[in-house]
């Protein structure tokens, strides 16, 4: 797991994710899923290695016990040093037993179920968060970022089909056309109008966040997150 991501991990505890108690910010997008197979493999290896080592060690401890018993150890090894040494031997045996019990209490099936639920919840939160972040970022610029203004003056015939307000939107822009009547009338009685065309950025968020992200890029608007850091990119 990349070290740069470890700082995000503990902010997304299993209990918080399953309970939906997660801040929907960019960090969610960076939090990795739990690698279930890697964990189960590591756990099984640990159990297997410890079990094999403990079994061999138990046999050796048994042999040592026999050796000590054969020397009538209860009567011979009575001083403090001997007592302590034999006690340390027994202590190791006890520690191994306790460790085996601890590892035995870790249920692989239970852990697998928890991991699956966690990953599923996390992915759902990622999807929602990404969409929310894009929409929020788009709303900040939509209709507010003026791209250009065009002004024209023309004499229009009365039968010109014109409107005083015109708005067009596409995926990335909104065009607003305004026409103003001037008080200039020519000899022919035709009126002069001033047309002001304002073009604004207007990012339409698509269902596919990748499309939306493309529109942000096209309009030169910064994305609300670093797409290169998003993990599980196939959202």
């Amino acid at each position: 797991m990349p070290n740069t991501l470890t700082s995000y991990i503990m902010n997304f505890k299993i209990g918080d994710v399953l309970g939906g108690n997660i801040a929907h910010d960019a960090n969610v997008l960076y939090a990795p899923k739990i690698d279930k197979e890697a964990f189960l493999t590591a756990l099984r290896n640990l159990k297997k290695n410890v079990s094999e080592t403990v079994q061999k060690s138990d046999e050796k401890i048994h042999t040592i016990d026999e050796g000590l018993a054969a020397t009538n150890s209860q009567r011979f090894y009575k001083n403090a040093t001997a007592t302590k040494q034999v006690s340390n031997l027994n202590e190791m045996s006890k520690n191994m037993g306790d460790l085996m019990r601890l590892l035995g209490n870790i249920s692989e099936d239970q852990i697998s179920g928890v991991i699956d639920r966690y990953n599923s919840s996390l992915v759902g939160i990622k999807k929602t968060t990404r969409k929310e972040l894009l929409e929020k970022a788009a709303s900040k610029v939509n209709g507010h970022k003026l791209i250009k203004t065009e002004i024209t003056k023309k004499f229009y015939d009365d039968d010109d089909n014109h409107s005083y307000y015109h708005e067009e939107k596409n995926g990335t822009t909104k065009v607003i056309t305004r026409r103003y009547e001037t008080d200039i009338t020519n000899d022919l009685g035709r009126k002069q109008y001033i047309t002001k065309i304002e073009t604004y950025t207007w990012i339409q968020c698509a269902e596919d966040p990748h499309v939306t992200e493309g529109r942000f890029t096209e309009m030169g608007v910064d994305l609300p997150y670093n797409p290169n850091q998003i993990v599980d990119i196939n959202l």
């Binding site: 503990m10 299993i14 739990i34 964990f39 590591a42 756990l43 290896n45 640990l46 410890v50």
Partner: peptide, 18 residues
């Protein structure tokens, strides 16, 4: 060593929850 290796590679989120 086996225990330490396990702790190094295991996801802390699992043990913390379990």
């Amino acid at each position: 060593d086996d225990i330490q290796q396990f702790l190094d590679i295991v996801d802390d989120r699992i043990l913390g929850y379990y």
